[in-house]
């Protein structure tokens, strides 16, 4: 698979969650890549986690946050 195809697969997964109303609330980076936690705004559902491996996807997800796709508000109901 080309590098772009690997990235594109991960980007689509990220974008799909964002389109479904999920927000990015946490990015944990380590030796294996970036584990991104998504939560649907206003929802008390379980967070969704994606492990992003490609550099471009890891850049894409932070660019999305940086550009103003704000993280979902903390889910107070579940605290």
């Amino acid at each position: 698979m080309s590098a772009f195809a690997e990235f594109d697969k991960e980007r689509q997964a990220v974008d799909k969650l964002l389109q479904q109303g999920y927000g990015i609330v946490n990015i944990k980076e380590d030796l294996d890549g970036a584990e991104v936690t998504f939560i649907r705004s206003g929802s008390d559902g379980d967070p969704v986690k994606l492990l992003l491996l490609t550099a471009d996807a890891r850049k894409h997800v932070t660019t999305a946050v940086f550009a103003g796709i704000r993280p979902a508000a903390p889910v107070e109901a579940s605290i």
């Binding site: 932070t62 660019t63 940086f66």
Partner: peptide
């Protein structure tokens, strides 16, 4: 995409993670 430096990226991640913890959800 909007310009974003490595330093800005790390700041974004730090801010993001600072406002969230597993315990909250």
């Amino acid at each position: 995409a909007a310009p974003m430096t490595w330093n800005q990226r790390q700041q974004v991640i730090s801010t993001l993670n600072g406002s969230y913890s597993e315990a909250e959800v």
